[in-house]
Design a protein around this nucleic acid. Structure first.
Length: 996
RNA sequence: GGGCGUAUAGCUCAGUUGAUUAGAGCGCACGGUUCACAUCCGUGAGGUCACAGGUUUGAGUCCUGUUACGCCCACCA
């Protein structure tokens, strides 16, 4: 009995079933196999802060596509999963929650308790993210899942830090950081956003010492006056040259500071031309301070209040101090007005509070040699970017060789493995650590204390009584651990054992890490362009440093998904789209297929979305207002459906809808592309399975193949070749288009239609069935990396009906047993010898003829069921070919081929059409409207004349004939001749129409 | 301010190294209850390839400039 498929594909059911099936059978697992070549992809580790977004969905789809493709090609393909602890992002989320729900700050609970809370958070969100990746169909080796703070990764972090330190690449220095006074932490530049606020621009004066003169300057932050250590003017500013070298008094502090000249800081045409210098609280002033060796006075406490250096203002909040400074300067007669102005102010992305520049001790990695090595790897092609232009971003950034500040004032992260001691002697240290090769120490740069770096934790009392070791409070920049991802996840620095699986000890124990040896270096990194510098560059750098080899050969940079208004999607903009909404609505395969079709090399992709009314399913287009609908307090915002007039809560990054509420989920028309494709594939397969009754495996001789068989095999061969080429270049959009076009416009629209009569014919059926099965088998394989679930479903059904399927690669399509699962099926290898351009051209003529007949039918509104007659005029060679396929005219156009040949005449009262090498006539006595037909032919003739004119113009240009390649000229001549012949035919028709 | 990118049909996007009559999906119009599929089938309309110059026998494609938009970096007392 033939297996029949349900009328519609049920994606949700199939996804659930097949994913478990694959996982249980270990199909995602990758282990070193000397018989095979390795293929490694390291996932760009998602943060454990929240849920998966569209960017992840795109990124994950592409990696899975490549991994499945390579796996089918016979590679041992590892896709390495894991998540990132994401230092500040995660800590900030947990802290914010704690404050909102319990009114507690981290200082209330303490370091250990906070870190414990974050671990709990991590467990929840990590599993949520991983399960979402699985819903996407991600064929990662889940046994190898790593987390940047786990044991394996921690060892790598410690070892790397230790090596850096030992090699003198790590130093401690001062740096002006972005200080978040609310979270009391330093914030990275990329975690700062600028926002326009109303501000004041005050002008004050400082009295010049020993003179009646005053020097005036303007500032937006008067309180920094407390920390001024100079006033600066431009060296060639004649208004001030006589004052350079003199001193002024800061009235409120009664402190004298010099007037200096610095062309880099002072701009003559800005403000008064003179500027106060506060090196400890402004980046430019800091640089100026370094150049001029100015003292640096820190006036802030970490909570944003003024410290003891602020004199009588100490203890005040900085904003209160600002007000008081203005008042006091005014009272002292040094206030010279204020101007209200808008200004851009840096804010912390996490706490949304204004940033203060703040001078602090930080740890740095020297970038000179490390950066150079990483640049070389790209310059000499050991690492290649796709598209290539992104190499520039990488090289430009590394070229600055700015030292990498790796310390963060946080509690969540890898604690810096440095211990301080300022009481012991070198001899004591030597004695204590003499037998330790995992401990090194040296004096700090300012000779204040010993810096002891250790790979393993040191006890505070390990130097014995009298000395106490204290560990540095800071943690490492998140990117420090993610930079090690490609080799850390494979177990480095342990080169003696394989890394653990499912966090259990490794099985093999022969003194080698086979996993690291086998899977490093990786094959390709798939990521988005915004972390080329932060992440990609640093992975190359540490890979070269630790492993002596690049971490991956290729870097594939894919587009970003923008919202319908062309903005990048982000939670702070409120325009995020939850891919789970889409998977729910359209199915995973549909989402994957559509996403793959987005991923080209040039443009970012706009994704207009709408909300689907849960009451009537009407779609309400998302507007910019929707994106900013934030619940202010209690009530969740709602949207109104214009169709059914009901309102509902909606899916949003801002809030979780209330339980039990009907929620308008996000939908997008664009995913119907993928859904419709799956539907088409499903139904084509359904048709095939319905027609496989009595299928018997057996060889097929070439001579038994019909035109359409040879054509579809030729096309399939070509399409597999194209897909290979496109995927090899990471042109996912092109690959998707090629495969869709083949499936829909060739396999379904033509091939299936053409073999229908043979499937009804007992004699012809066996061969038709065999070819049909073999093509469907090949098609399902090619599609598997794109749409794994539906193809597995189809594969299984095919296995029930036709477990023995012809192998297209074999000479006579001899049958072989199909594999148990599409996951273990091999990628189709179809000999290029099946490709036949001549045959494809002839087939195209057949298609054109049929389209032309259908066109006539449509123009004259002839019902599809009414039979037509066709006469074709063409040379004898074409006549034979047309004769051969005459049965298809009837099959596909309900048209009988009455006559064909060079002598065929147009019957009177016939509708006509003209092709490149043949003309067709369809007698329509009584139906045809002469005027209408005449108009139609005139229009055709005009079109042809226009083309002819263009070609003639080209050929009449002597320069073209002389200079263009002969081949091109020839082509034009041939095309012209064809067009002219065609025009003659049309003109003949016109004259006949006019005569009759 | 520096760098990179984009501008092609109503919408979303393709268009290899310059040479075919510039394409697709959606939407639109017209016609379809044929036993795979209305998530479908058939037919069709729709484009001065942002603008201005240039190179070339030939430009959607290369160069220069302009405009608009996007991203990254730097800066903004």
């Amino acid at each position: 009995m033939p297996t029949t498929l349900a009328k519609q594909y049920d994606p949700q059911e199939a996804q659930h079933r097949w994913f478990s099936y694959w996982e249980e059978r270990g199909y995602f697992n990758a282990d070193p196999d000397p018989e095979k070549q390795s293929h490694t992809i390291m996932i760009p580790l998602p943060n454990v802060t929240g849920a998966l977004h569209m960017g992840h969905a795109l990124n994950g789809t592409l990696q899975d596509l490549i991994t499945r493709w390579r796996r089918m090609q016979g590679y041992e393909a590892l896709w390495m999963p894991g998540t990132d602890h994401a230092g500040i992002a995660t800590q900030a989320v947990v802290e914010r929650r704690m404050l909102e729900e319990e009114g507690l700050t981290r200082h209330d609970v303490g370091r250990e308790a906070l870190v414990n809370r974050i671990w709990k958070w991590k467990d929840t969100y990590e599993s949520r993210i991983l399960s979402q990746l699985k819903q996407l169909g991600a064929s990662c080796d889940w046994r190898r899942t790593r987390f940047t703070l786990d044991e394996v990764c921690s060892r790598a972090v410690r070892r790397t830090f230790f090596k850096f330190f030992d090699d003198g690449l790590i130093y401690r220095g001062k740096r002006l950081v972005n200080w978040d006074t609310y979270l009391q932490t330093a914030v990275a530049d990329d975690e700062v956003f600028r926002e326009e606020v109303d501000g004041s621009f005050w002008t004050f004066t400082y009295p010049v010492v020993g003179s009646e003169e005053h020097i005036s300057f303007s500032t937006t932050r008067p309180e920094t006056m407390l920390g001024d250590t100079a006033v600066c003017v431009h060296p060639s500013d004649e208004r001030y040259t006589h004052l350079i070298g003199q001193k002024v008094t800061i009235p409120l502090m009664d402190r004298e500071i010099p007037i200096i000249a610095d062309a880099l800081l002072a701009k003559m045409d800005m403000g008064t031309g003179a500027v106060k210098v506060t090196p400890a609280h402004d980046p430019n002033d800091y640089a100026c301070g370094l150049r001029n060796k100015l003292p640096m006075i820190n006036i802030l406490n970490s909570d944003g209040t003024i410290n003891e250096n602020g004199g009588k203002y100490s203890g005040m909040d900085r904003y209160e101090a600002r007000q008081r400074v203005v008042e006091d300067m005014n009272a002292a007669g040094h206030y010279h007005g204020v101007e209200e102005r808008k200004m851009e102010l840096a804010h912390s992305d996490r706490s949304k509070t204004p940033i203060e520049p703040y001078l602090s001790d930080q740890w740095f990695v020297k970038m000179d040699d490390l950066a150079q090595a990483a640049m070389d790897a790209v310059s000499d092609g050991r690492v290649r970017f796709y598209p290539q232009r992104y190499a520039k971003t990488y090289l430009d950034w590394l070229g600055e060789k700015r030292d990498w500040c790796i310390s963060r004032q946080l509690w969540w992260g890898h604690r810096i493995p440095i211990w301080y001691c300022d009481t012991c002697t070198e001899a004591e240290l030597q004695q204590a650590f003499d037998d330790r090769d995992d401990v090194v120490f040296r004096r700090d740069a300012e000779d204040r204390c010993w810096l002891i770096c250790s790979e393993t934790d040191l006890e505070a009392d390990c130097l014995g009584p009298g000395h106490t070791l204290t560990q540095d409070d800071d943690v490492l920049d998140t990117w420090f651990s993610s930079a090690l991802w490609p080799h850390a996840t494979l177990g480095w620095p342990d080169t003696q054992h394989d890394p653990p699986l499912d966090d259990a000890a490794p099985a093999s124990d022969d003194g080698k890490n086979h996993v690291l040896d086998y899977f490093y270096p990786g094959s390709v990194l798939v990521t988005s362009r915004d972390i080329i510098t932060l992440w990609v560059a640093r992975m190359v750098l540490t890979g070269l440093y630790n492993m002596g080899d690049v971490p991956f050969r290729h870097v594939c940079i894919h587009p970003k998904i923008l919202d319908g208004f062309g903005q990048t999607m982000s939670k702070s903009k409120g325009n995020g789209v939850d891919p789970m909404d889409l998977i729910d609505k359209y199915g995973t395969d549909a989402v994957r297929f559509t996403i793959a079709s987005f991923a080209g090399e040039t443009q970012d992709v706009r994704l207009p979305v709408g909300y689907e009314c849960p009451h009537c399913e009407a779609v309400i287009a998302q507007t910019l207002e929707h994106q900013t609908m934030i619940p202010a307090g209690g009530e969740k915002p709602r949207i109104d459906c214009p169709k059914c007039k009901k309102s509902s809560q909606f899916s949003s990054p801002w809030f979780d809808p209330d339980p039990g509420e009907a929620v308008a989920r996000v939908v997008s028309e664009r995913f119907e592309y993928g859904r419709n494709f799956c539907n088409k594939l499903w139904n084509a397969s359904r048709f095939a399975l319905m027609n496989l009754e009595g299928y018997q495996p057996g060889p097929v001789d070439r001579s038994e193949l019909m035109l359409e068989d040879r054509w579809i095999l030729s096309r399939l061969s070509r399409v597999v070749e194209d897909v290979n080429t496109y995927l090899g270049r990471y042109q996912f959009d092109a690959a998707t288009r090629a495969i869709r076009e083949f499936t829909w416009n060739e396999f379904c629209d033509w091939y299936l239609e053409m073999i229908k009569p043979r499937l009804r014919d007992d004699e012809l059926r066996p061969v038709a069935q065999r070819v049909l099965v073999s093509v469907l088998d090949g098609l399902v394989r090619v599609l598997a990396p794109f749409v794994p679930f539906i193809t597995e479903e189809l594969w299984q059904r095919l296995n029930e009906v036709a477990p023995q399927r012809p192998v297209i690669g074999s000479e006579d399509l001899s049958p072989a047993e199909a594999s148990d699962s599409i996951m273990t099926a091999s990628w189709p290898e179809i000999p290029a010898s099946l490709q036949d351009s001549g045959l494809e051209d002839r087939f195209e003529r057949l298609q054109e003829t049929i389209v032309a007949v259908r066109n006539v039918r449509a123009v004259y509104s002839i019902p599809p069921a009414t039979p037509l007659k066709l006469h074709m005029r063409c040379d004898e060679s074409a006549a034979g070919e047309i004769q051969d396929v005459s049965s298809q005219f009837e099959n596909l156009a309900k048209t009988m081929l009455e006559s064909v040949g060079a002598t065929v005449e147009r019957p009177s009262g016939a509708a006509s059409f003209s092709l490149k090498d043949a003309d067709g006539y369809i007698p329509l006595e009584g139906v045809i409207d002469r005027e209408e037909e005449l108009g139609r032919q005139q229009k055709e003739a005009d079109k042809l004349r226009k083309f002819i004119e263009g070609h003639q113009k080209k050929l009449s240009n002597a320069n073209f004939v002389e200079r263009a390649p002969a081949e091109v000229v020839n082509d034009v001549r041939e095309t012209l001749a064809g067009l002219q012949k065609q025009l003659e035919s049309v003109e003949l028709i016109i004259s006949q129409l006019s005569d009759s």
